[in-house]
């Protein structure tokens, strides 16, 4: 999941009696699956929670370009390089769709960017892990994009119109990402012994961080309860994680790779796999800023923002000058 631990109102879901007439009418629309659009009345908490969630989601797309961009110059063939470039370009586009959706809620793009750059807003913990060998690019596409799709497919039905539309567009493009990742994994897993070892090593390192993407269990979270009631969130973190594990296990088997979990076993009774939880203390530590690459990622984003300032200013000055000249000529 690209948005983890998004805080909502923190007050729990209001009962019907506690709602104002406006709030009750709003909840009725959500319950009837009628989309909420930018100009419609909405509770302040709904607006704020959405800005946090869509913003975090957008930041994840943008920061997510960094671990993959790391391999563009080192891709093993020209074709792989072109494919990876196209994928990283897609991520920029996904970030843009999401920022635009957030902007319809009355927040500015620059404001969101600045909140990312100074650490007030988060991005997914997964992008604080390094991509050390070429198989990591395969593992990122297969597992990380796979986990993202798991989260984003239900979000196509989210209650806020612009967010839902952005998700529909993103999901269309995202399956290319997962398939290109799996394609790399197949090549590596069926390659030389050294390549197979790299593929297994990538799976070993990315397995638990991928499970963390869904966030810690939220079955008792008041924030999640509110987001579920507002249909900003469709499934609980545990439900999505279970689905992800069940989907991925046969894919790993096909590759002949071993998921690094001795407790992994099919549970006939629940119709799903039993598996080990990731180390949540590591997760909280990474979210706090102590992951292997947190500093690199934020430094890179800050550098890009600062180095690009003259371009943004220059193009705007040029546009204003031309507009003034045009007005003068009329």
């Amino acid at each position: 999941m690209y948005a983890q631990m998004v805080k909502s109102t923190g007050k729990g879901v209001k009962s019907r009696d506690e709602m104002s007439p406006e709030e009750a009418a709003f909840q009725d629309r959500i319950d009837a699956d009628i989309k909420i659009e930018p100009k419609d009345w909405m509770p302040d908490g709904y607006r704020k929670t959405l800005i946090r969630q869509i913003g975090q989601h957008a930041h994840s797309e943008i920061v997510g370009q960094l671990p993959e961009g790391n391999w563009i110059t080192r891709a093993p063939t020209l074709e792989r390089k072109a494919i990876l470039l196209a994928k990283v370009q897609d991520e920029a586009g996904h970030g843009l769709y999401l920022y635009c959706a957030a902007e319809t809620l009355g927040v500015s793009r620059d404001d969101l960017t600045e909140q990312l750059l100074d650490g007030r807003m988060k991005y997914s913990s997964i992008f604080n892990y390094p991509t050390l060998n070429w198989a990591d690019i395969g593992a990122v596409g297969w597992l990380v994009d796979g986990a993202a799709i798991m989260n984003q497919v239900p979000l196509q039905r989210t209650s806020y119109g612009p967010y839902s539309r952005a998700m529909i567009r993103i999901c269309k493009e995202e399956s290319f990402h997962q398939r290109q990742g799996y394609d790399i994994m197949m090549k590596m897993a069926q390659g030389t012994e050294a390549q197979r070892r790299m593929a297994q090593d990538a799976l070993n390192r990315f397995w638990y961080p991928s499970l963390m993407m869904f966030g810690p269990s939220d079955k008792d979270s008041v924030h999640s309860a509110q987001s579920l009631a507002w249909k900003i969130k469709i499934d609980t973190n545990d439900e999505l994680r279970q689905k992800f594990v069940d989907q991925t296990v046969p894919q790993a088997e096909y590759l002949g790779l071993t998921i690094p979990d001795d407790n992994l076993a099919w549970n006939e009774e629940k119709g799903g796999h039993d598996f080990s939880e990731p180390d949540w203390s590591e997760f909280f530590d990474v979210v706090k800023g102590n992951g292997p690459c947190n500093k690199d990622r934020l430094d890179a984003r800050n550098k890009a923002w600062e180095d690009g300032a003259w371009v943004r200013e220059g193009l705007l000055a040029h546009a204003e000058k031309r507009a003034a000249r045009k007005t003068a000529a009329e």
Binding site: Q89, G93, L96, Y97, C100, E103, R109, R165, A166, R169, R312, L315, L316, H318, A319, R322, A323
Partner: peptide, 19 residues
Amino acid sequence: VGSLHAPDAEMAIKNARDV
């Protein structure tokens, strides 16, 4: 299909093509 930021119309078309 969506929206984007650009300094002027010409750049908006170019960016729209890319995105």
